[in-house]
Amino acid sequence: MNNRVREAFANGKAFIPFITCGDPSLDVTKELIRAMEGAGADVIELGIPFSDPTAEGPVIQEANIRALSNGITTDDIFAMVEEVRKDTTVPLVFMTYANVVYSYGIERFMKRSKEVGMDGLILPDVPFEEKEEFAVVAKENDIAFISLIAPTSKDRIRMIAKEADGFVYCVSSLGVTGTRDQITTDVASMVELVKKEQDIPCAIGFGISTPQQAKAMADCSDGAIVGSAIVKICAKYGNECVPYVAAFVKEMKDSICA
């Protein structure tokens, strides 16, 4: 069991930013990881780009295309993490698609993840029914295989929560990733159902872009995950994005801890 991810939730509400590796470049990704750690990120989600990210909205889709057109590969990303691990301790989890892991070789992917200092893995296209193939090998390598629950999960929450590792990723809304004006799902009840089954941290993601939303979501869970809003900043400022992202992460972290 990977404890680093769980421990990230030990000191108050967690803020979890997401970036796509290689957008705009792997050098900037390295700087972003360091700067976000400094700005108070409790866990960082690193997206390994995929050609056809079916769970993503336009903002992250475009980041995937930018990264891939830079020629970024899974091996380059492992090397980048190995490098950045020399001076960071923040828990790092990969977020990518089943085919990226499967084509690399599940065993080889998990081993290499452990070797470079990764802590977890999120695969949005691997639901409970298909997770064994990935989760068993992940566990052997001390990589937390993170489960997702959605507003449509209903009765499924119980079985998912029971076998969840690291933290539970609570999807706030229907649809794909992307910023939303309003989150209407009763996420608090979803979190409650998880906790009944296992005392595991729950973080809410999808649609969160403002400090107010992040606070509201963190208030009824253990943390907030923000992707598209950060990727938008990366897209806007390109190579100069690091201070802007760091300022945004700090604002969000301050807000949820207030």
Partner: peptide
Amino acid sequence: GQYIPETLMNA
């Protein structure tokens, strides 16, 4: 198999 987001599983 069924390699889809959790959101679609019940559907």
